[in-house]
């Protein structure tokens, strides 16, 4: 006979932490993410140099002890700009995830609970939004309102809504036919209460994993938008914009293109590893395959 299905097992918080820190992906991802977050926080209080001051005498310095990552064509310190730029990247991606979760999860849960026509309508709405890649909506929004960080947030956030709606709906649909839901209905609980008490706690891990994935994608999308000049506007430094400016100077100062790119790669890598780690630890189905 089959062994008791491990997927019904619950982790206590302590055992989750213990397992998580035994997981290589989680540990690396956690360390990188904490470092980046720490760097962003630090930039509010201290940066090696002031990024708003243009010191022409110091322009185009290659990396050295005084300017670890060198300086740009206006003499600004690249390390300081990367530190300040991380704020922008994190803020845009985080708010976009918030928009996506805040609207998408209720929408997906609602569709799964009600079913029928409403479910169909929500899914068709998803199809519609999926037909507009984030960059395309950003282009449209910029065409109307002009460029800016807010528009980037809206464009990426809108794209996140159907992503979370889909994940929440699929997760909820898998839980609804389970016997403990029938038992809750036999205990007279309504669909809203069941969703809050039984569905959400059981899809939280899916949402958490998707959250880190969308966070990483948000960082990449924001970088792309600001590379095109559709994101944060100068003088606010942003990683994408730094790369755009570096492109024209690539012959003379290739290091200018190197460091902001590394910043993006490392941040995204850290978040993806964290997401992988969390899903390894939380999803026993994948764990069994190891």
């Amino acid at each position: 006979m089959t062994l008791p299905a491990a997927e019904f097992e619950r982790e206590t918080f302590g055992s989750f932490i213990a397992k998580a820190f035994a997981n290589r992906s989680f540990v690396i991802g956690f360390v990188i993410t904490s470092l980046i977050a720490g760097m962003a926080l630090l930039s509010f209080f201290w940066t090696p140099y002031d990024v708003t001051k243009l010191i022409v005498a110091d322009r185009m310095q290659p990396p050295s002890a005084t300017h670890l990552f060198g300086t740009d064509q206006f003499g600004r310190d690249v390390l300081s700009m990367i530190m300040v730029g991380s704020r922008n990247s994190i803020a845009v991606a985080l708010v976009a995830v918030g928009i996506g979760m805040g609207l998408g999860v209720p929408l997906g849960c609602w569709a799964a609970a009600r079913g029928g026509f409403l479910d169909e309508a929500v899914m068709r709405f998803n199809d519609l939004v999926f037909a507009f890649p984030a960059l395309l909506s950003a282009v449209m929004i910029t065409a109307i309102f002009g460029p800016g960080a807010i528009n980037a947030i809206i464009a990426i956030g809108i794209f996140n809504i159907p992503v979370f709606a889909r994940v929440a709906r699929a997760g909820a649909l898998a839980i609804w036919p389970r016997e403990f839901i029938l038992a809750a209905r036999a205990a007279g609980k309504g669909k809203a209460l069941i969703t809050v008490e039984h569905i959400l706690p059981n899809i939280a891990n899916l949402l958490l994993v998707q959250g880190t994935i969308q966070f990483a994608l948000g960082i990449l999308a924001e970088a792309g938008l600001s590379y095109l000049g559709l994101g944060a506007q100068p003088p606010m430094p942003s990683w994408g914009r730094m790369l755009f400016e570096a492109q024209t100077l690539m012959m003379v100062a290739p290091y200018l293109a190197l460091f902001p790119g590394f910043a993006i790669v490392i941040t995204v890598l850290g978040l993806n590893l964290l997401g992988d780690g969390v899903s390894d630890v939380l999803d026993p189905k994948l764990r069994r395959q190891r």
């Binding site: 019904f8 038992a183 036999a186 609980k189 008490e197 706690p201």
Partner: peptide, 25 residues
């Protein structure tokens, strides 16, 4: 009601007190 599957009958994230007390609702 009592169901067939002793594994699927309970929300794995709640403690017994809350699970058994559910019909008190």
């Amino acid at each position: 009601v009592v169901f067939q599957d002793p594994y699927g009958s309970f929300n794995p994230r709640h403690k017994v007190e809350r699970l058994v007390a559910e019909p008190l609702h």
